[in-house]
Design a protein around this nucleic acid. Sequence first.
RNA 1: UGGGGAUUGGUGUAAUGGUAGCACGGCUGACUCUGGAUCAGCUAGUCGGGGUUCGAGUCCCUGAUCCCCAGCCA
Length: 567
Amino acid sequence: MTSDESAGGGERVDFIRNAVVEDTKSGRFGGRVHTRFPPEPNAYLHIGHAKAIWIDYGVAQDFGGLFNLRFDDTNPTKEEQEYVDAIIEDVRWLGADWGDRLFYASDYFEQMYQYALDLIRKGKAYVCDLSPDEIREHRGTLTEPGRDSPHRNRSVEENLDLFARMRAGEFPDGSRTLRAKIDMASPNLNLRDPVMYRILHAEHHRQGNAWCVYPMYDWAHGLEDSLEGITHSLCSLEYENHRPLYDWFLDQLGIYHPRQIEFARLNMTYTVMSKRRLIEFVRAGIVRGFDDPRMPTLAGLRRRGYTPEAIREFCRRIGVNKFDSVVDIALLEHCLRQDLNRTARRVMAVLRPLKVVITNYPEGQTEEMDAVNNPEDPAAGTRKVPFSRELYIEREDFMEDPPKKFFRLAPGREVRLRYAYFITCTDVVKDPATGEVTELRCTYDPATRGGDAPDGRKVKATLHWVSAAHAADAEVRLYDHLFTKEDPDDVPEGQDFRANLDPHSLDVLAGCKVEPCLADAPAGSRYQFERLGYFCVDPDSALGRPVFNRTVTLRDTWAKIQQAGQG
RNA sequence: UGGGGAUUGGUGUAAUGGUAGCACGGCUGACUCUGGAUCAGCUAGUCGGGGUUCGAGUCCCUGAUCCCCAGCCA
């Protein structure tokens, strides 16, 4: 089973899959393929992680292999159970299946410690008493070699003794480290005797106080992969410089040795993708939380109304590469619309209501109009929508003095009310004080019931509407990109990304009117509000008083015409 | 100015010495009871300079530009 049909047209074999094919053919791993997604539980997952997950999981799937979910929880000062729980939920929601292989790096601490002992005995690791500052000084620079630590040539016995006492808690934080003995003159700084263990008297979210020495990433990661029998350790580009170290540790130990392959992380227009930044947004109150629908987090996208299918399709389309690129967020939105268009039920909702009175329609009468639930899916069936003398239409669907290309309602003009009747605007009622249009008086043509004129006459526009007496009140939250610029970091000298924050990224509309069938819509359910966009019921909803998040607008050619006119 | 990696339309990606293709976006037009969807068409590209070859995005040389690395973060 491969995922390379359609959309991109033709087969799609990226450089990673090519490498895997190569290894499968050569029998390097006995034909096995086994990948993993190794998040650190120190923040929520975002769309960039979705790319990584889908590469890891997708490769395993394509080759009939296995996929592990493993928490890389080697730094107790940054990691929390809350993040573990959120990550599990997000990966599951996305649709990657790790079977019963949910692992934690912290479960390997004892084994890692034993491996460290092994390295010490081989004379390849030593306890160093240098302070963090001193280590930095000894490391040299990009262009100058480093200097050996004065503790580099301690005896194996002394190293063993000191390391045991580090573990036993005899020394304060930062006082000593265990270092690999490699080459202080290496042009690759990662090889200049990297730290393997640091002393951290901190409580670990799973290990409690069992440990006060914690392994560093470079030391730990390869061991985790090795222990789990991972064949292809896929990671992002910045680890390319670490691969020699990854290989060195495994070679020195002489243990099972996976292959690390690096790919570029995802960047997207109008979006920041660093965990640090996202945490900052939450802490600074720029957004309401990690699941704020404006966040690129999976939790945020989910709340916004994104579907896992759309995100997966997006990941498939962006491909895998080895250089930095910025994907247009329009592609993500395209994938979303494509999915929602197929699956979302259509309903009518009026965001900014303008009252319409049908003067020749009998007072007190109600009719049930037949409406199609999803023209893309006949199986979705039809529903009844109540129609009566007093309705609401969208304010922006009426203009008293319309420009040339505006073909909605205007004085004297006839339009169709979707699934109902043709109406003609006869009067405009205004607030005498402000001049604001408060109500429209219209007549309807009884012969056009259902929306078709027996005499064959056409109207240029079809408007959505709701019956005033039957509509449910709703709150609707309109979202826009968090940033006004494609590149949030494109700021004037001396300013930061805050300069590009869009103050209108959230627009809350109260008093919206929706079809009665929406009054008790369950949280998380998705709809297309006809002519407006896709909307998703927010968990903030109360019974009879739904709250909707706008997931994404419909493609809107009228909006484009308007914008062009303004320019 | 050490080392590592990279460069194909506006954007994202294919082409593994043999017609530079697909998708997003944009622009036309058709159709339409959603200015949606759908359909048709158009738009625009191999970082520069040399070389090898019948033939180069691909191979060689050379230059340019961009990204990563000096955490006891991952």
